[in-house]
Design a protein around this nucleic acid. Structure first.
Lengths: 324, 324
DNA sequence: TGCTATTATTTACAAATGTCAAATATGTCT
DNA sequence: AGACATATTTGACATTTGTAAATAATAGCA
């Protein structure tokens, strides 16, 4: 049925405005359903229907304002101790580890759009945290923005590819996406060098180096970490890096406690953004959803990758304790 | 009283988190008040109190998503016909002229933060529309942002100065403010030239020319317009400019139907940003709250000052009609 | 320690909202 | 005109939320 001739006449309010009009009066002007119904000569049930439709269409946006989390005592202390520009700390008391994870991811999804601006080129790492963040993100439309896939593709323990991760995020942000059509690691350094020299890959690598903002989580050096299950590193690789002082993983690279990339057998075979392009950026957003990532997060902070941190109170306290 | 030892223990949830915790569960997790009360061993009324406190502190942000207004048929038509980047059209059926005004201002206040980005230098005009917009704006914190006062001071028919207007806006946006400490108009061109040459004024004028975004409304050429009541223009001035084809006023300057500044007796005596600095900007946000400003708004659009428009359905229809 | 003031929380009731099924109204198409 | 799809209303009831007064707890001070 042609919606423009639908009965949503509400006196003289045209059809397409009826839902918005009712939503405006209810949410912005604070009128109750009964008064709105009387004002338009419709039933209260219709008002309820319109409000429900507004919610279902995603017209209503209810969030907790960022300052509720960023002016928090723990947030302020994290900034002071670690020289961060801002920290967003969600409360987590009485929650399970999984709920903690979801809250941090949700908080990051709420904060991220406020940190982005038209023209931004956002490099994103790959992992469950970033993928779930993309899923939690409501649709936004940030003009002239590009999402950059910083690491190549690999076996996917989580059921989604690096490409899918950054593409999903780009879609949610109304941004373009620059993907990296190469494996994250190859069998030989010569092959990797040849692939990097391939014009299309070379252009993609050049393109991702233009990021001005970074969104990432860190990987742990535990045997069950995603770098292992993704097939990037073997047990021998892991043993080598741990022996060399690895504290965590950033964009597929092992880093020590100071955040410095550890030279090793994997690097020459890898395709991805050079680590040094990830420090000193105008904005580096680290999302740390669990205590297992405290040591790796400290390494990222010390290494200069982080200007903005999203975490929960438990992790915040652990980070502050770790700092001494 | 030391808040940290207050009774808001809620089991193990510390005092400062209680309100945020409750708000999170209610608004984000969708728990009802009864379940929240049981979870924390407090009364439902306490949950209500916490939620009310969260609202009063501005922790809760309930808005209608911008696409409800920008993907509107009329909004799309305005963009198509006038080459705008975006238009935000609030419904206004069955509202009085004053309610219309307030809605447009409220809509502009809701949209503006989404249009701004860290590092922006936002030039603002002066008038009731912009001042009320600043009052309607909820607090935001846009990093490294500056608000620029584009016009000098003058008699104030509205009870607020140009400086107060831009300062209020800057406060709401968490921005710095660059004020223009000079009268908008002087008694002689020589005196105006001397003042412009004054180092501090010269620096201020140079500073405001660095704007990358503009927020303004237009003035009418009616005898009761604010340019008259502010003492900027005499009846003789007005007569002169009307005879010369004036269609409206932009930042204190008369413009014709094509948006071109009209040469006249006032210009040499005025202190403010040159008109040519206001066209071709990455973003020009015009707020048009009433039909009386349709002609002047058309002039602003034709003159290239506008990339984004905020208005209501009645004005949108009038603008589209005026375009033929 | 006791008193007072202040703030936090609870109690009880009122009001608002959500839900649902059945009935009615409206628009389109044949 | 009738069939069909969709929108809206009606009315009742359950659930949830809001409010104001009363009570409880805490901090400060003499």
């Amino acid at each position: 049925m042609n919606q423009l001739s639908k009965r949503r006449t509400m006196g003289r309010v045209s059809g397409e405005n009826a839902v918005i009009e009712v939503a405006w009066l209810y949410y912005h002007d604070g009128l109750n359903q009964k008064d709105i119904a009387e004002a338009f000569g419709i039933s209260r049930a219709t008002v309820v229907n319109y409000l429900q439709e507004a919610r279902e269409k995603g017209l209503i946006r209810i969030t907790l304002a960022a300052p509720a989390f960023t002016t928090h005592r723990l947030a302020a202390e994290l900034c002071r101790r670690f020289g961060l520009t801002a920290a967003y700390v969600v409360p987590d008391e009485g929650t399970t580890q999984e709920q903690q994870f979801m809250r941090v991811v949700r908080g990051a999804a709420l904060w991220l759009p406020e940190l982005l601006a038209p023209g931004d080129r956002l490099g994103v790492a790959w992992g469950r945290t970033v993928f779930d963040l993309a899923a939690a993100l409501e649709r936004h439309d940030i003009a002239d923005m590009t999402v950059l896939q910083l690491v190549g593709s690999m076996a996917t323990p989580y059921g989604f590819t690096a490409e899918a991760c950054s593409t999903r995020l780009a879609q949610r942000l109304g941004a373009r996406c620059l993907n990296l059509h190469a494996p994250a690691i190859l069998s030989s350094a010569d092959l990797a060098a040849a692939l990097r020299a391939e014009p299309i890959i070379s252009r993609q690598l050049a393109g991702i180096e233009t990021l001005n903002k970074l969104l990432f989580s860190v990987g742990t050096i535990l045997p069950d970490s995603h770098i292992m299950s993704a097939g990037l590193a073997t047990q021998a690789d892991l043993d080598h890096y741990v022996a060399a002082g690895a504290a965590g993983v950033i964009c597929g690279r092992f880093v020590d406690a100071g955040g410095r990339a550890i030279p090793g057998p994997m690097e020459a075979r890898m395709i991805g953004i050079p680590m040094e392009r990830l420090t000193g950026l105008p904005m580096g957003i680290l999302v740390t959803p669990g205590k297992d990532k405290v040591e790796a997060s400290m390494a990222a902070i010390r290494g200069g990758y982080v200007t903005h941190l999203v975490t929960c109170t438990t992790v915040a306290e652990a980070l502050l304790s770790a700092a001494g």
